[in-house]
Nucleic acid binder design. Structure first.
Lengths: 191, 191
DNA sequence: TTTATATATTAACATTTGTTAATGTAAATA
DNA sequence: TATTTACATTAACAAATGTTAATATATAAA
């Protein structure tokens, strides 16, 4: 039995609204209307519109960093690490697709100093991925290629996945998705 | 010797501003300030802020559709077609990286009926790509895989490329980029 | 020289938007 | 029962924003 259902509903519906219309396009009045109460009511739950975005973004961002760090701490090979990264990325995205969508599309709307904090974290994350790939090439598990482009390609192969878990269509099985994405990243489309 | 340099400068700088800050975040006063004149001046060049976005978006969108259609009309094999799509996509992106960035990030800010017109076109484009991939699998040029996921993966491998041609860093050679991306898409990262 | 075009300004407008103050009520807790 | 907590309202604000009207000037074309 959940408590404070109204507060939870607020955060849930606001998140979806921001995903649907974009952060800048959503007004406090939009949110209020969706929840069927007056705009002033929102400030019982959150200090400002910006704070709302920050909350969503840093919450999911932390989870990704944390999960990545745990994988990196392990003694798995670079290839196994990448597979784990793919796996946990898809699991997390399947569980929190709307926050993931904000992470991809709305971080630009952060204001300083939060914007810098976020983009620095983003760089750190990407560099960690790049290091795994670099090591994998070095050790001969991956073929020789441009490391930066490989990093971008790898990350972009994961970035669109939230799209499969937002909306009302039947959701794809995360494990099947993981297999398909893994195959694409490691063996490509060719035979 | 170019004519109407001021008008050209307006469209150029507005485009870059929208790319940097996002369409919603850019105000007419921002644009005016960048061009060192008064806001009212903008309306000598364009009817409205929305019209500006529409202009950029449908211009580049048309080029992509046109280029794709020309490739599809050819008698090349699915694999060769995909390679051509990659190639022309990168060439176009290298030539118009800022418009490409808007195409990826700002189309949501279109208003009806332009929004529907755009998203319909997007669907058409993606379906054409899917059909090429489906045919390639059917003919045994590509390995057996989920067609929809392959389509998303293929497209997402191309979607980030504008990032390499905006900004002031040294631009990567498009032909080298094409090789790297092609290799990633067709053979993956593994050996 | 006259005319048309491109480019510019000032001033103001109607809306929209995030936010606050003051206050009330129903439900949960002590 | 008394009191705190959660949830709600009305009314208004200051600032920001897209846009327009009226008008001026420099330049290029006729």
């Amino acid at each position: 039995m959940k408590q404070t259902t109204k507060k939870e509903k607020f955060f849930e519906e606001s998140l979806k609204l921001i995903h649907e219309k974009g952060f800048k396009a959503v007004t406090m009045r939009d949110i209020a209307q969706r929840l069927d109460f007056e705009p002033a009511n929102i400030y019982n739950y959150i200090d400002s519109k910006q704070a709302l975005l920050e909350l969503y973004l840093f919450d999911i961002s932390y989870e990704f960093h944390d999960s990545l760090n745990n994988i990196l701490k392990s003694s798995y090979s670079p290839e196994e690490k990448l597979k784990l990264i793919i796996s946990t990325h898809i699991q997390l995205t399947a569980k929190k697709p709307y926050k993931m969508a904000l992470l991809v599309n709305e971080w630009r709307n952060l204001k300083e100093p939060k914007l810098t904090e976020f983009t620095e974290g983003k760089k750190v994350y990407e560099n960690k991925i790049r290091d795994v790939i670099a090591k994998g090439i070095e050790e001969g598990q991956f073929r020789s290629m441009d490391i930066e482009i490989a990093t971008y390609s790898f990350l972009s192969s994961l970035r669109w996945i939230y799209d499969k878990y937002t909306g009302s269509e039947s959701k794809i099985n995360p494990f099947e998705l993981e297999k398909q994405i893994s195959d694409f990243i490691f063996t490509g489309m060719g035979k």
